[in-house]
């Protein structure tokens, strides 16, 4: 369910895509949120799982992974982004700038798999 404002924002973005020139009318909507400030999403790492396992965000939004396990993990999409070791209790912040589908793993425990979708 979308609110009126969100629909309006979406419409503006779509318009921007169709008529690139139109985007200059509403620079604030480029990040996807009508409030102007891009949203922040969180992924919790607990019991060797990324939760949520798949996350979809808009370009410009921020994702924070927090490690609740008692040992380090990584968030690694080969050649795309790499948190390196996130200590127990630590977190890592990533600003999603490029659209795409990024499957990632923990290099320390490669049976841990997650997916970040950037629209």
């Amino acid at each position: 369910m979308r609110t009126r404002t969100q629909r309006l924002a979406l419409a503006l973005i779509c318009a921007g895509a169709l008529f690139p020139g139109a985007a200059t009318y509403a620079p604030g909507t480029a990040g996807g949120a009508s409030a102007g400030k891009p949203a922040t999403h969180s992924v919790v790492i607990d019991g060797l799982k990324y939760d949520p396992e798949t996350l979809t965000v808009k370009r410009g939004e921020t994702v924070i992974w927090t490690n609740k396990d008692p040992f380090p993990h990584t968030v690694t999409a080969q050649g795309k982004f790499d948190s390196h070791d996130i200590a127990a209790g630590g977190s890592w912040k990533y600003v999603a700038r490029t659209a795409g589908e990024y499957s990632y793993i923990c290099t320390l425990h490669p049976n841990m798999k997650g997916m970040l979708r950037v629209e």
Binding site: D46, G47, L48, K49, D69, P70, F71, L108, H109, P110, N111, M112
Partner: peptide, 14 residues
């Protein structure tokens, strides 16, 4: 024990 079990699996595979 349940929570850390997957770590042992990961270690075994590694």
């Amino acid at each position: 024990i349940t929570k850390v079990r997957p770590a042992f699996v990961a270690h075994l595979e590694h």
